[in-house]
Computed example of a mutant assay.
Amino acid sequence: MTSDLIAAQLADGDRLSDDEMISTLFNMIAAGTETTASVIDWAVCELLDHPDQLEQVREDPSRWDDVVNETLRLHAPIMHEPLRYATADIDLGEGVVIRRGEAIVVNFGAHGRDPDLHQDPGSFQLDRADKAHLAFGHGVHYCIGAPLSKLEANIALPALFARFRDLALAVPRHELQHQPSFIGNDYQSIPVYPHGLPTDA
């Protein structure tokens, strides 16, 4: 895709400006790669933390989509969107007004963790009836890459767990370090033993 974009820009400079090409490539890397990696990372950790649920998915591969959607609900890969600013006063009711010019932060992860919408929202449950989330946004701003991201996760996860049936975290989960990011939501790294815990662990 990068080569195609560069070829289009070189063939006809009016089709893509330098800024447009760089912006598109940045979106491919940031939005099209890091976010999908985040979903896969979180799903791996949750399944290793819940071996009973991992076994359910192994017995019924049609449930990998449940894994992906429950992971997206609980761990949105983009937790906060950069600031927006109110262009007019916004009355939210109950005495809450966002004044014109005030900053607004969109929290995509809040919906999936709302206790008014999801029972025991902090737990990972494949059998949860309502896995609704806003991890990909909503309405006209819904992420155009959402189907591809979910497809990639639905391919990567069963392949990983089929290849490494005894995959195990190499450190306790609470020792994993989060990315130092206000926007992205992922671990810096996830060290694993591909063939199970060593006998002296």
Rank of each mutant, 00 (worst) to 15 (best):
R84L: 08
Y187N: 11
L47C: 05
L160H: 01
L197T: 11
D4W: 14
L48G: 03
D14C: 05
Q177A: 10
W64Y: 12
S62E: 15
K131H: 04
H118N: 01
G32Q: 10
D12Y: 14
F182C: 06
F124Y: 09
A37N: 08
H174Q: 14
S23H: 09
P51C: 12
Y85A: 02
D14W: 05
R63V: 04
T35P: 00
R163P: 03
N69K: 13
V96T: 13
I6D: 02
T33K: 09
W42E: 06
P158H: 09
R173L: 12
R163Y: 08
I155W: 00
C45A: 14
N185P: 03
N27Q: 11
L72T: 05
D89Y: 07
A86G: 03
P180I: 15
D4Q: 15
T2Y: 10
A153I: 04
L169K: 06
D116H: 14
V105L: 15
D4P: 00
F26M: 11
H174M: 06
T33L: 08
D127L: 10
P77V: 07
A156V: 12
F164P: 00
P77T: 15
R84I: 03
P191G: 09
L5N: 01
G196M: 07
L16D: 00
L83M: 15
A159N: 08
R100C: 11
A30F: 15
H195F: 12
I78M: 15
E94R: 12
I6E: 02
E94Y: 08
A132M: 00
D41E: 15
I6M: 07
V44L: 11
P61H: 11
D200V: 11
L92I: 06
P180E: 11
C45W: 07
I78H: 02
T71N: 00
N185D: 04
R63I: 10
I6R: 01
Q53L: 08
D60I: 09
S149E: 02
Q56D: 15
R99V: 03
V171E: 14
V171F: 13
D66K: 11
L157N: 00
A37Y: 11
P77I: 12
A8H: 04
S3V: 09
V140W: 06
D66T: 06
D186A: 11
I29R: 07
V57K: 04
L126R: 00
K150A: 09
L54D: 02
N69H: 13
S123T: 12
A31G: 13
F161K: 04
M79F: 07
Y85D: 00
L169R: 01
G122K: 12
A129H: 12
P115A: 06
Q56K: 14
P172V: 10
L126T: 02
H138K: 12
A7D: 12
A37M: 13
A168H: 07
A103C: 08
A76K: 01
I98C: 05
W64H: 01
C45Q: 07
T199K: 13
P191E: 10
F124C: 13
E175A: 12
L48P: 05
G112K: 01
H138I: 03
F108N: 01
T87L: 08
R15S: 08
G122N: 13
E102D: 12
E102S: 07
L54R: 05
D89H: 14
V39M: 09
